[in-house]
Write a protein that binds this DNA or RNA. Structure first.
Lengths: 333, 333
DNA sequence: AAGATATTTGCAACCGGTTGCAAAAACTTT
DNA sequence: AAAGTTTTTGCAACCGGTTGCAAATATCTT
């Protein structure tokens, strides 16, 4: 069925090497043979088998794209940018969904079987050890949306969650709130831990402001809604830092149910700036993560590591900024 | 670096074939050799190279998952279910993002280079010819969310958009609306054309009801919002069938801006039942597409076609149903 | 225990490509 | 036109596996 190198070689009346060379960047072929080969290839509808060639070249141009965030709408943007970014560089994303997978070893084995050139772990809720398992297997790996550490074992690209927590605190302080709170994602997620830490750090110098902290069970609408409903039962704070947009939108829904006005009765600031935050009927004040930059850097870094495997692990963090919308009262003049 | 068959064979003191056979389902190996080989493989950390074996077996277990819907939140659910469904069957999704791609031939060539066993085209806005290009190249293909035709050239799985249009019309008729309208997605999309057709068909037998039709420029929040804002400038209908949920949510935002109440002043019914439709602060009445069934059927069909390539193209359509929420007034008793 | 049968094993060729090397062909130089 | 250089070409081995076949081994009959 499939047309092979040999078929083209016979048709063009040249050796198999000649055909291989015409399809290899920078190989030595005369204009005449190239023309013959290209004509024959055209006629037969030949296109080289990438997998067969990977056997000798050692490169598949396959990149494992591993995530467990298939419920946070932000990740549709993430997948869009990753797939396009990889395609533009001639790389192919092999998608791995970890939603119901517990054993990282499984994914490592599978991706090794497919000889991926590199792996991008896109998740803020996976343990660092997960990405490290790939490194230990000798596969170049980047942990996107991962946690900053001073001596990382793998490349990490993301935001400084501690700084974001601080930024959120400052936004609430600047508005003169006296009772504020952090409503985090799942307590075990390092992203939530760091955001809480930055938030509390910034407020530590403001003893006049009352602070409290609670955690939703997941980064999801329902979890945010349930947690806010619980908080509203007894003496809520004036303003909340929601650990994530989708969580914050869930919280908004609980607030509306209770008949309270946002931002008059209660304020909220999210984190991510996902597409829905901009929707006018949600209009969430939030802290924007520069997703396109994070993804571009992740791709750069995985490509660089493929070319230079002993490259030292590095951390690239991008600055976030507050996006003013309608869920936090305006700054006093 | 990598451990190969040969390494394991030498270590275990057997032939390469013996090693290959221990890792091949149903091959003939004695318990004794199997044990020796497994021990050696364990010690060396060997796992077989899936791509090398694909060369002789002709199967890569790679499935091309092609889409251009990286902005409709519904598709995050779609990708979640596809990736998990494929993984459960030992298949690997190679993701292709067509968002900015115009030439199907490119994708066909690329997926052929990677010898994918089959392709799933997941899109309601791609031309049938796109999926057909794969079939013409001899690659088993299923068009998910595609259009029903009586004599399909490729497998199609989806919903009966005409029936859905009819269903939407009936929902509005049953509520006693006298002026209704269809606000479709891009006019060129076959899904929109069919939904419009069903909608108009059902209303044809109700000459007392005034009907109008208009189209948004895309299946997106902004397009829905802009189109509804335009409609509200002059004499809008009492109730709308929005061609899609995200479009309808955009429309809701324009309606709220105008200070109108839903469903009292204006009603809307969407289509898809994506996650956000359920969010209490959106609470969109809509028609549910049975996404999990569509995806399971798509996977079944692509697998069946891989095993039996000359299988006749078939169409599998799943029934939709109205999900009552808050954007359409209640049925009269 | 010999013969018949069934199972296991290794050899060698193959899958579809790439690549080092030496020979052949094409140019330069004088 | 001969000698020297450079470029192009094909051979053959290899990448990491699989598989048909015949030989070797094990198991079953009687």
């Amino acid at each position: 069925m499939a047309v092979t190198l040999k078929d083209v070689a016979e048709r063009a009346g040249v050796s198999r090497s000649a055909v291989s060379r015409t399809f290899t960047e920078g190989a030595s072929v005369s204009a005449k043979t190239r023309a013959k080969v290209e004509a024959a290839a055209q006629e037969l509808g030949y296109s080289p088998n990438a997998l067969a060639s990977s056997l000798t070249t050692g490169r598949t141009k396959l990149i494992g794209l591993v995530s467990n965030n298939f419920h946070n709408p932000l990740f549709l943007e993430v997948f869009d940018l990753f797939t396009r970014g990889l395609q533009e560089r001639g790389l192919r994303p092999l998608l791995v969904n970890l939603s119901h997978e517990t054993d990282p070893a499984n994914s490592v084995r599978m991706l090794r079987q497919y000889s991926v050139d590199g792996v991008i772990v896109a998740s803020s809720t996976l343990q660092p050890s997960f990405a490290e398992a790939f490194r230990d297997a000798g596969v170049p790996v980047v942990h996107s949306f991962g946690r900053y550490t001073t001596s990382p074992h793998v490349h990490v690209v993301g935001i400084d969650n501690i700084a974001c927590g601080r930024m959120a605190a400052q936004a609430l302080i600047a508005r003169g709130h006296r009772r504020v709170a952090f409503m985090g994602g799942p307590e075990g997620a390092t992203s939530t831990q760091d955001r809480a830490r930055g938030f509390l750090d910034a407020l530590a110098t403001h003893p006049e402001i009352a602070v409290s902290v609670s955690y939703a069970s997941a980064y999801s609408f329902d979890a945010g809604r349930a947690e806010m409903a619980r908080l509203l039962q007894s003496d809520p704070a004036e303003a909340y830092f929601g650990g994530d947009d989708v969580l914050s939108i869930g919280a908004l829904s609980a607030i509306a149910d209770k008949g309270l006005q946002v931002p008059q009765d209660i304020g909220i600031i999210g984190l991510n700036d996902m597409a829905m935050a901009r929707w006018e009927n949600i209009n969430l004040t939030t802290i924007r993560q520069p997703i396109p930059e994070i993804i571009a850097a992740s791709i750069d870094l995985v490509v660089a590591t493929i070319e230079q495997p002993d490259r030292h692990p590095e951390t690239r963090l991008f600055p976030c900024r507050v996006i003013e919308r309608g869920t936090l009262r305006p700054l006093p003049d």
